Amino acid sequence: GANPFIVPAMGSHGGATAEGQIEVLESLGVTEGYCGAPIRSSMEVVDLGKTEAGISVYMDKIAYESDGVILVNRIKAHTDFSASIESGLMKIASIGLGNHKQAQAIHTFGVLGIRDHMPIVAEHIFQSGKILMGIGIVENAFEDTAEIEVIPVQSIKEREQELLRFSKSLMPKLPVDNLDILHVDKIGKNYSGTGMDTNIIGRLRILGTAEPETPSIHYIIASDLSEESHGNALGIGLADLTTERLFQKIDYQKMNENVITSSFLKRASVPIKLANDREAISAAIRCSWGKAPGEIRFMRIPNTLHLEELYVSEALLPEIEKQGNVEIIGEMAPMAFDDSGYFLSF
Score class of each variant (00 low, 15 high):
115 R>T: 04
86 E>V: 15
241 L>E: 02
130 K>D: 06
137 I>M: 09
156 I>E: 00
264 F>H: 07
267 R>S: 03
245 R>F: 15
241 L>V: 13
52 E>M: 06
21 Q>K: 12
61 K>N: 06
129 G>C: 04
268 A>N: 09
118 M>N: 12
107 H>M: 08
58 Y>A: 13
230 H>A: 13
131 I>A: 08
31 T>Q: 13
48 L>C: 15
244 E>R: 12
212 P>I: 10
70 I>A: 01
77 A>S: 12
193 G>Q: 06
78 H>P: 05
245 R>K: 10
45 V>N: 03
15 G>L: 07
337 F>S: 09
199 N>L: 07
263 S>L: 08
53 A>V: 00
157 K>H: 14
87 S>Q: 14
336 A>D: 11
105 A>T: 08
289 W>K: 15
189 K>R: 15
179 L>A: 11
177 D>I: 01
172 P>G: 03
130 K>H: 11
1 G>A: 14
201 I>P: 00
164 L>W: 10
12 S>E: 10
236 I>T: 01
19 E>F: 01
181 I>P: 03
249 K>R: 11
331 E>Q: 07
198 T>C: 12
6 I>Q: 03
197 D>V: 03
196 M>V: 13
131 I>M: 03
283 A>W: 08
338 D>L: 12
288 S>T: 14
84 S>N: 13
325 N>I: 08
135 I>L: 15
66 S>P: 00
339 D>K: 12
323 Q>R: 11
326 V>W: 14
56 S>L: 04
299 M>W: 06
130 K>N: 15
114 I>L: 12
174 L>W: 03
166 F>K: 11
79 T>V: 02
221 I>K: 03
288 S>F: 08
201 I>F: 10
106 I>R: 02
343 F>S: 09
79 T>P: 00
217 I>C: 14
140 N>F: 04
8 P>N: 11
23 E>Q: 14
264 F>N: 10
301 I>P: 00
293 P>L: 05
280 A>I: 00
26 E>K: 14
94 S>E: 06
101 K>G: 02
311 Y>D: 12
308 E>G: 09
278 R>W: 04
210 A>C: 05
100 H>M: 07
272 I>Y: 05
191 Y>D: 04
248 Q>R: 15
137 I>H: 10
22 I>T: 07
